[in-house]
């Protein structure tokens, strides 16, 4: 299942809607890394609220996305990790070190706007 990627002002928002296979995650990674350049985005939000499992592959792929996007000159934030998922990740020893996380989409946008110095409310009016 392909993850829809929305452009919101200077940011890309990837909103995961259902369980993802490994191939879907890799596809998401490649799409984000490509689009962040094509759309000249300043930040990426990956919303994982709908993910009921974050195993080692999903965690590593999200980390890869963050670091690849950072090498492209933009910032990524993972939002919406659910309490049960966070509990399991800690039990597994999966840390997402170096990867910014935020509670939800709103907090994610606030995080990115602080990072790139533009006020959050401007996200709708800024194009390209």
């Amino acid at each position: 299942m392909e993850v829809p990627i929305l452009k919101q002002g200077p940011y890309l928002i990837a909103s995961i809607q259902s369980a993802l296979s490994d191939a879907d995650l890799v596809q998401l990674r490649d799409a984000l890394v490509e689009q962040v350049g094509r759309l000249r985005s300043r930040g990426v939000i990956v919303d994982v609220t709908a993910l009921d499992v974050m195993d080692s592959f999903a965690t590593r792929t999200l980390r890869d996305i963050t670091f690849m996007i950072r090498l492209r000159g933009a910032e990524t934030v993972i939002v919406g990790i659910q309490p049960d998922v966070a509990f399991t990740m800690v039990q597994l020893g999966l840390k997402l070190e170096g990867v910014p996380t935020a509670l939800d989409l709103e907090e994610g946008i606030t995080f990115l706007s602080k990072k790139d110095g533009s006020p959050a409310k401007e996200t709708n009016s800024r194009e390209r």
Binding site: D52, V53, M54, D55, S56, F57, P83, D84, V85, F87, T88, Q91, L92
Partner: peptide, 12 residues
């Protein structure tokens, strides 16, 4: 949370 643990173990 136990269901999430079990599902994650199966995934691994």
């Amino acid at each position: 949370s136990e269901l999430t643990l079990i599902a994650t173990a199966i995934s691994e």
